[in-house]
């Protein structure tokens, strides 16, 4: 498969097995800056494995992943984690906020880990919390907010470093439809305004409808639906 010029992240012929299980069997992927791509397909088909490979969390057995012209699979562990910290943002099904920290401290955390001062980090964090309409929760701890609110805090935290790629694995999976849609609306709006690419794994069609296009993963193989039709 040929990948369109100007792609930010490209994966070719990814293979990954876990013991006897083939999780990826020649999967392909590409995404442009500012593009929202939904990854769909049945349970166990390899969607999360694909996302983890693209994000440099899991190393594929073979195949290539290029981010901004650099081969991710041949980077050292420390190069890869630097890439994750500086260029990527993550949102998962369950917010994964640190329970001991307040919401604003949670959102500011990635900036603190990158060396920002507390004051500067929390100022930027609060700006993102305003955009996601959760700034009034700044002093609360994750245990004191609702699921929908917590997920918006998690989206703010994922975006606070101004990532070039946002990886979201079932970001609305634990929410009711009203909250899920609001999270998607805010997430895609924020990503578009910063020209971030979004890799969105979801099995919900109404969530995928916020994407620009979708790929389908079946038995570890991907199908780009735009290039099929």
């Amino acid at each position: 498969m040929t990948h369109p010029a100007g792609s930010l992240l490209i994966a070719q012929d990814l293979r990954k097995t876990y013991g006897p299980t083939t999780a990826l069997d020649g999967a392909e992927f590409s995404i442009h800056p500012g593009e929202v791509v939904a990854v769909m397909g049945p349970s166990g088909s390899g969607k999360s494995t694909l996302l983890h490979c693209l994000a440099g969390i899991v190393t594929p057995d073979s195949g290539s992943i290029t981010y901004n012209g650099r081969e991710v699979t041949s980077m050292s562990d420390s190069e890869r984690s630097a890439l994750r910290r500086s260029e990527f943002g993550f949102v998962f099904q369950f917010g994964q906020l640190v329970p001991e920290l307040t919401c604003v401290e949670n959102v500011a955390l990635p900036l603190r880990l990158n060396g920002s001062s507390r004051k500067a980090a929390e100022r930027t964090a609060l700006g993102w919390m305003e955009r996601l309409e959760v700034d009034d929760l700044r002093k609360k701890r994750p245990g004191e907010v609702s699921g929908g609110q917590g997920q918006r805090v998690a989206v703010a935290r994922a975006l606070v470093t101004d990532p070039r790629v946002l990886f979201a694995d079932e970001p609305t999976g634990a929410l009711d439809s009203l909250n899920g849609e609001r999270v998607m609306e805010l997430l895609t709006e924020a990503a578009r305004s910063t020209n971030a690419a979004v890799v969105l794994v979801t099995h919900e069609a109404r969530v995928a409808a916020y994407s620009d296009r979708e790929i389908v993963v079946r038995d570890g193989r991907s199908r780009d639906m735009e290039r099929v039709v």
């Binding site: 939904a38 769909m40 609306e185 069609a205 109404r206 995928a208 409808a209 916020y210 994407s211 620009d212 979708e214 389908v216 079946r218 199908r223 639906m225 099929v228 039709v229």
Partner: peptide, 24 residues
């Protein structure tokens, strides 16, 4: 038969994107 499903899903999503955009 899986191909039929994928193609149909894609067609439905096309309509759903238009509606989602209008909604927004």
């Amino acid at each position: 038969a899986g191909d039929i499903l994928d193609t149909q899903r894609s067609e439905h999503l096309r309509s759903m994107r238009i509606l989602t955009d209008r909604k927004r």
